[in-house]
């Protein structure tokens, strides 16, 4: 599954990245290299598209593409073969999708929205019937609260009518294929949603999945009646940072060092490094000097500028030698990007 999409992303990387670079983009890896690649190769649409997948499975899929001779190359650069391009031709439907990976998948917003929406439909449908008890679909505690508050405030009858009108109106504007997949995924009165696998029959599982997610993105991009604001409130609340990075940020602002943060939060040092890079990239208040001496930063910035944007982290590390660790280089890269966008 997602074979066509992975191949598509590899082709977009223009023979300058490995297949695992493509996997990182789809998985939504929060590293400077991946974030840079997304911008450089204009892959915002698919960034984080496979966030809910296991990294292991995606890596196996890349391996499979090699074995089937869809792609060639080494662990630095992969290229799509003629056989691969032949397969890509069959995935033209992908271009018609309203899929907004960077905005809704990378951030995890789509998944949260889906769980809340699904539970709302299920609750509103079940409460409208005589058989009010139901086996609730999976949702986190705060998501359940959000749905409960919607129903409590507006009343289940009103919620039922409004959500029907809203979904009916939006789905009418989409291909019937997509609308049917989306509605079949929903739980409702005395009815559970079908799984993606169950819906894959006349079309590949990959297409079912991406069409379903596209409808979610489409719905998220529209205006929702006031009664349903708790469905999308999480989108506004969060910044570009991951939840865990926000917690690290609090310690950064308290003047803690990298090791102190790792100890205090019980995280691996490499995870804290990822957070620091993320902060360096998005947070204009990030106190960079504490984590990289200004001399070192200057030296690495020069190396990074000389290398140009196409260079991979590995190449740069080779050039830099002892002048900086991988972390130093990532941090310098992130700070450069942050400055360029005028945030610093």
């Amino acid at each position: 599954m997602l074979k066509g999409l992975l191949l598509h992303v590899i082709s977009k990387l223009q023979k300058s990245r490995s297949a695992s670079g493509a996997v990182h983009i789809l998985k939504g890896k929060r590293s400077a290299q991946t974030i840079q690649d997304i911008e450089l190769f204009q892959l915002n649409q698919w960034a984080g598209a496979a966030r809910c997948w296991k990294g292991k499975d995606l890596a196996a899929l890349a391996e499979q593409l090699y074995n089937e001779k869809m792609i060639t190359g080494d662990n630095r650069r992969s290229a799509v073969t003629d056989k691969g391009y032949h397969l890509l031709k069959q995935t033209a439907w992908m271009n018609e999708l309203y899929f907004q990976g960077r905005e809704y998948e990378w951030t995890g917003f789509a998944e949260v929205f889906w769980r809340k929406l699904n539970l709302t439909v299920q609750a509103a449908g079940s409460l409208a019937s005589t058989n009010r008890g139901f086996l609730p679909v999976y949702a986190e505690a705060d998501e359940r609260d959000a749905v409960r508050s919607i129903i409590k405030r507006a009343g289940s009858r009103r919620v039922n009518r409004l959500i029907y009108e809203k979904l009916d109106q939006e789905l009418r504007q989409l291909p019937d294929k997509s609308a049917l997949i989306f509605v079949s995924r929903l739980a409702g009165n005395q009815s559970q949603g079908k799984t993606v696998k169950q819906l894959a029959g006349s079309m590949p599982e990959e297409e079912v999945y991406l069409r379903w997610r596209s409808v979610i993105h489409q719905l998220m991009s529209t205006e929702w009646p006031e009664e349903f604001l708790p469905l999308i409130s999480h989108v506004k609340q969060q910044s570009a940072l991951t939840n865990s990075a926000v917690k690290t940020r609090a310690l950064v602002m308290n003047g803690k060092s990298k090791d102190e943060i790792a100890a205090e939060r019980g995280l691996k040092s490499s995870t804290v490094e990822d957070h620091l890079v993320e902060l360096a990239m998005f947070d204009s208040a990030f106190p960079a000097a504490r984590y990289i001496p200004s001399e070192k930063l200057k030296e690495l910035t020069v190396i990074l500028q000389d290398a140009g944007q196409q260079a991979s982290l590995k190449d740069i590390k080779e050039t830099a030698g002892d002048k900086g660790s991988y972390f130093d280089i990532r941090l310098a890269g992130a700070l450069m990007k942050n400055r360029k966008e005028g945030k610093l």
Binding site: G125, S129, D168, S191
Partner: peptide, 13 residues
């Protein structure tokens, strides 16, 4: 296999 019908069923409309 008609999504309008299915949506009505899910919402008990």
């Amino acid at each position: 296999d008609n999504w309008q019908e299915l949506l009505k069923n899910k919402l008990h409309i």
